[in-house]
Design a binder for these strands. Structure first.
Lengths: 155, 155
DNA sequence: CTGATTGCAAATATTTTGCAGGGCC
DNA sequence: GGCCCTGCAAAATATTTGCAATCAG
């Protein structure tokens, strides 16, 4: 789809600019890592998985560098580092626009992770920050349960 | 406080019964682990931290056993295993009554973890399960931000 | 008694760090 | 040249597993 290519390009430019602005170099390894993350926007890749895909594009890349890059990109808020509780950190490109939150539905049956894109927590955040005087910067909301298709299969 | 002792005792009995019902043996190691978890209900201990406290009560306990016990107790829904994203699993006694949820406020400054006890997500869960046909079993909600006292210090 | 449970040590898994070398400005 | 960045190997951290010995029921 052409429009996807365009979106992809503008996303790409935005991120390159951001790196540049922060005085970090755009090395082939970082480029490959960013590409992988953009291409797998919905996949919640682990560091190891990112590494394997990066190696396809830039075979000499070391695992340590991938870790360092993922760290760096998280620092810059280009990535979100998430932890679903399985002991592996996962990474995904942060959506543009600070308040564009999304949440995760994890199926206890098939293990699939789905995203939902609404910000459901406006009211809740309001309540929490007033009541507990807590200045909210970010939130993580994960639902564990049974996904639609697994429910159907169980019948 | 006398009432605390009574609460503690009834909690203790309930858990012993649960283990027995499921045909698991109540070994000194498991007893010590449970005690530690009850005594530190609010502390979000890591496996290592549980281990250190268990050793005070039962010095010959091995770390592997603590891991195995924590796993077992999580299986039985006696504990919740939580992951705040720092690479360490943490454990806490599950409150009696399935729907007594609580959430966590993590301060990005001092690292303190506070709990809030309301169930804020009734409406949100309603929305999600209808809209995505997702059968919710549990949820995790974590807020990252700046706690009250750190906000004051920054002024 | 007998299988469940344990401690210990070794194995895994994940992530971080030290360091010497390479490349960009 | 100076410094950022890299790969590699080793270290650090967190957790799991194999196995012979032990213990709870």
């Amino acid at each position: 789809m052409e429009s996807e290519a365009i979106i992809w390009q503008s996303e790409w430019k935005r991120l390159k600019k951001k790196l540049h602005r922060e005085k970090y170099k755009l090395t082939p390894q970082r480029e490959a890592t960013l590409q992988v993350l953009i291409e797998n926007e919905k996949s919640h890749l682990s560091a190891e998985e990112v590494y394997l895909r990066v190696k396809e594009k830039a075979p000499d890349t070391g695992l340590a560098t991938v870790y360092r890059t993922l760290d760096l990109l998280s620092e810059l808020d280009i990535l979100d580092k998430i932890n679903f509780g399985d002991g592996v950190a996962r990474y995904e490109i942060r959506q543009e626009g600070a308040k564009h939150f999304h949440h995760h539905l994890i199926c206890l049956d098939c293990g699939e992770v789905n995203e939902i894109q609404e910000d459901l927590l406006m009211d809740v955040e309001e309540k929490v920050s007033t009541k507990y005087h807590f200045l909210i910067k970010d939130h993580r909301l994960i639902f564990h349960g049974i996904c639609d298709s697994c429910q159907k299969q169980q019948k």
